[in-house]
Design a protein around this nucleic acid. Structure first.
Lengths: 213, 213
DNA sequence: CCCAACCCTAACGTGTGCGTAAGGGTATGG
DNA sequence: CCATACCCTTACGCACACGTTAGGGTTGGG
């Protein structure tokens, strides 16, 4: 569904990778304002993905990984990615492994790393004297990330439990007098005493209001 | 606001300290900006924190909840909190329920809500016509947050698995020739074929380096 | 009275990850 | 030649949650 245009390649020849999944659904992003329109009258049905020469323009790459062109540019600007070549008109041309790179960035970002931190990994990688050494360092980073993500999951699980407890606690309110005012909540005695008031509930009616009209 | 679904990975907080050190007089520690000292000379035994009628100064509150004074001020500026009184010299004085309020804010923030969103809850609460109605709305909000946090946990769990798989995959590198260069990794055949190369590994050696000196 | 340790109100600064113009080429079908 | 639909670089803007001066009062013990 990408453009079928052939792009002149000016730079050095880049190793073209082949053998990837051929038919990728266009996967239009509905939440995005980005418009993925086909050229009018063009319906690239059988010509699934193989861009000529196997290189991708930045827009193709962006679509492939679900990012915006701006994001790709940004990644490049912080040293996370570089086009393998440029067209005669200075269009960025990416090999397919750029897809893996961007996805990799995305995952690490989801793991809570900043782009700068992710870039550090590449630096570590590039400066390592040997492959085993590089991998040791990468492993160390990943090991730490693993612990962090586990900690985070634990934290969220606790919060999950607290939200559940609060919802449970608040079910009692369904039986409350419909004319009762919120001001009375802080002195409410309708809740079971078996459960203490959750912090996610108690904090609501502290003596500090909001509206300042 | 494209990532409302995203929850903060990690929350930093300041360790809440309690001054229980012996009376050393006013500490002038140049290494620490924040000085946690009890009133010099006197260590009140039973009257642990009753500054004025059981009210807390902003610094006391901050220490109690592990936030900075600036953060407390900020919360006030966005309508999340208000002092119950002011001293003659316009010092903010908080009742103890302010502690619950701030903790409540902290938890909701950890759940991925912005301060503005949290403030919305207070607005909803304050504008509700009756207590049961207010609680219904709160429950709806919490219900949604519960789903979001569960989604987030699921996402992180997947990532956790991927990191684990990557670490597992990279163990093979320990047996790699110590003189092997990183450039050879992309063509490495030492790894078991039973597991495909994890994306968290593959992305590292795409053809886009970093150092641009 | 003095001083240290607090507190006050602005108000500007910071780090992150892009969004959004602005102004202008490039590539290709018709 | 023209109309699209891409692409380029540069650069300012933004949302968030505070951090950080800056300049100056307040509190309370000694």
């Amino acid at each position: 569904m990408s453009n079928l245009h052939r792009l002149p390649i000016v730079g050095k020849r880049i190793e073209a990778l082949h053998g990837d999944a051929p038919a990728l659904g266009p996967t239009q992003d509905p939440a995005s304002k980005r418009v993925f329109v086909l050229a009018p009258g063009v319906a690239p049905v059988s010509d699934a993905e193989g861009d000529l020469d196997g290189l991708l323009q930045v827009g193709d790459l962006a679509r492939e990984v679900g990012k915006t062109v701006r994001a790709i540019h940004h990644y490049e600007s912080v040293g996370l990615l570089r086009p393998h070549a440029r067209s005669k008109g200075r269009y960025r041309l990416y090999a397919k492994d750029a897809i893996a790179r961007v996805r990799w960035v995305g995952k690490l970002h989801e793991l809570g790393m900043s782009l700068a931190q992710i870039q550090q990994i590449l630096t570590v990688w590039g400066q390592a004297a040997s492959a085993p050494e590089a991998m040791r360092k990468i492993r160390a980073i990943y090991q730490q990330k693993l612990e962090e993500v586990r900690t985070q999951i634990a934290r969220l699980s606790i919060l999950e439990g607290e939200v559940e407890a609060s919802l449970d606690y608040l079910t009692t309110c369904k039986t409350c007098d419909p004319n009762e005012l919120v001001a009375a909540c802080s002195a409410c005695t309708n809740h079971e005493e078996t459960h203490a008031e959750p912090e996610l509930v108690a904090g609501i009616y502290a003596t500090a209001e909001s509206p300042k009209p």
